[in-house]
């Protein structure tokens, strides 16, 4: 193993938006915020049937102490370089084909070990939660990374509303599975519907969020509209998109990638430069947006979020539980 320099994760309490993004984007964002004065989160997500990617709407956000001070990737990179196999296997397929996804009306089924199961429509899911801007690093298992200004809210706050009972040890998430809207599910490269899971403790960690937007606007379809998980200390495939069901379970849920190649992808999938993928090294990563001539950068343990999440795994052999 090459030695890996582990930088301490920096969490800046107060960051000025102008520090983290270039000026034109910043000015645009201010414009969104002004618009957002009249468009509250609820209004932006009001059920306009057939709403799709073309209709991304401005969102009103508050800054978060969990944001990184690193400069975010461009909106173009974030919305054209995606893994969303339901819309095809190439990185540019989702941007091209996800327009067929219908995100309104949308409802999420809450099931399993909790006191408030049921079908909730999107507006009811979102209503009580103030939206935060969370600028997070995203590390893909394919050894590339981005910095993304998500808009979202704490997953833990959402979960509490459904009152999971003492038997709930895990949370499982399911993506929409509709061959009509999703041309990619006709091919059985993964077991559809895409499903993912977290332990309850992971789900309650303040870094875990449900994202509904990025760059101050609602999510484009290819990024997992209308709502998705973001767990920044895990490889990107854990951050499941376009969620239609959240279930509380006693047993560890099966997860799509671990089912398809159990020797390559585990349940935890924590970012870890010391544990290589069987076919490639995880020690370094390519930051998207750097062009042709910038070397890879070292990957950080838990993607740089060790201070917030390492305690979740004390006593766990991370090499075995990859």
């Amino acid at each position: 193993m090459p030695s890996v320099k582990i930088m301490k994760n920096r969490i800046t309490k107060t960051i000025h938006a102008s520090e983290i993004t270039d000026e034109s984007v910043y000015l645009k964002r201010r414009h969104f915020l002004q618009l957002a004065g009249i468009a509250t989160a609820g209004a932006a997500f009001a059920a306009i049937p057939g709403r799709s990617q073309a209709d991304v709407k401005p969102l009103k956000t508050i800054p978060s102490k969990y944001s990184t001070s690193q400069a975010p990737n461009s909106y173009k990179d974030i919305t054209t370089y995606n893994n969303y196999y339901e819309f095809g296997l190439d990185k540019d397929d989702p941007a091209r084909y996800a327009k067929s996804l219908i995100t309104a009306p949308w409802s999420v089924k809450i099931s399993g070990e909790c006191d408030k199961p049921g079908d909730y429509n999107l507006e009811d899911i979102l209503k009580p939660h103030p939206l935060e801007e969370r600028i997070y690093r995203l590390r893909c298992v394919e050894a590339w990374s981005m910095v993304i200004p998500w808009v979202g809210f704490s997953l833990g706050d959402l979960i509490k509303r459904f009152q999971p009972n003492s038997k709930a040890k895990y949370v499982s998430f399911t993506t929409l599975n509709d061959p009509v809207q999703m041309p990619g599910v006709g091919r059985k490269v993964l077991t559809w519907p895409y499903h993912e899971g977290l332990t309850i403790a992971e789900a309650m960690n303040p870094l875990a969020i449900i994202a509904v937007g990025l760059y101050g606007k609602t999510l484009p379809n290819q990024n997992g509209a209308p709502l998705r998980l973001v767990v920044p200390w895990k490889y990107g495939f854990k951050s499941i998109k376009s969620i239609v069901e959240i279930s509380f379970t006693r047993n560890r849920p099966e997860t799509s990638w671990a089912l398809s190649a159990p020797q390559e992808y585990g349940f935890y999938a924590n970012v870890n430069p010391q544990v290589d993928h069987p076919r490639w090294s995880q020690a370094r990563e390519r930051l998207i947006g750097n062009g042709l001539f910038v070397a890879k950068q070292p990957t950080l343990v838990f993607n740089g979020y060790a201070d917030q999440v390492a305690h979740l795994y004390s006593g766990l052999n991370l090499r075995k539980n990859f």
């Binding site: 054209t80 370089y81 990185k91 590339w144 390519r286 998207i288 062009g291 042709l292």
Partner: peptide, 18 residues
């Protein structure tokens, strides 16, 4: 494409594409 000339481009991850 490597130098974004003549409308050619290597996309968001140019090294991998090349």
């Amino acid at each position: 494409a490597a130098f974004n000339l003549a409308g050619q481009s290597l996309g968001a991850n140019p090294i991998e594409e090349l």
